[in-house]
Amino acid sequence: MADRLDLGESAGGNDPLHVPVVEGYPMAALDTTLGRRLGAGFWVSVGWLVVIVTVAALAPWLPIADPNETGYGGRMDRPGWATWFGTDTNGRDMFSRTIWGARVSLTVGFVAIAAGLAIGGTLGLIAGYFRGTADRVISFAFFALLSFPGLVFALLIIAALGSSLKVVCMTLGVLSIAPVGRLARAATLVFAEREFVQASRVLGATHTRIMLRELLPNVLIPMSALALLGMAVTIVAEGALAYLGLSVSDGFSWGKMILLGSAPRTLRDGPWVVMFPIGAMFLTVLALNYAGDRLRQYLDVRELAF
């Protein structure tokens, strides 16, 4: 816990308040009272995410209606005992559709950010560790990606390649490379300065080994906080694409459900058709943001590139 050691101070030996001293003093304990706790809100958020992921994953096996079965209920039934979330204009069960919609939204969020982590994280690690030319090239690439308007980029790709789930995931994944990569680079820079990395080089470890064994485990921690925030951003981005009519053609996400429910007449006669997917998306994004933010504070991540 005395990770944040301050050499100048510790040499003299100091007391708990002042410095996290070297010789096993209670700085760590003091730290926890000063807000280094995840808190109940974090666990409530995680609880919601676990529930939504579980039901989305188990959707085909749950005793719920077929989301595409038109006329399961009446046309725009109000929410009630028979159909908990009501039905839409085609009489499809909104409860079932909200769960099935979660599958696509969460898949897009997860796959896109996972791709960002894999590619951006690797590039950031390489840039931060080797510095020099590699860093200049990779950092320039990140800047270029960040400078390109994301929405225009997505529009172009999807217009060119069609809006399959794969393409949407890939597009959003590419957009998440630069922010993720910049954080990975910043975190790597911090740890690469530490003496355990030098010690490893003196032992004769290869660069690959140092990056995988010494740096990656340390860099993954701030990245995990970013991953949650990134998923939230991606889910919202997919919603925005859907609203422009560019969402997945093979299946439906919360965003597409919102688009379908937002026709003026539907909105007037059956606001629940749009409210439930909005609510689910709102709660999920809120939970991801809150949990990610708490985690970021808890782990003390300084630079966040979003």
């Binding site: 005395a2 990770d3 032992l203 485990p217």
Partner: peptide, 21 residues
């Protein structure tokens, strides 16, 4: 290949050890 012949100890004992290992 020659590195193992010469090893080093650093000033900051905490920073010298990888906190994750």
């Amino acid at each position: 290949q020659v590195r193992p012949r010469m090893q080093m100890i650093f000033q900051d004992p905490i920073s010298s050890l990888n906190p994750r290992r």
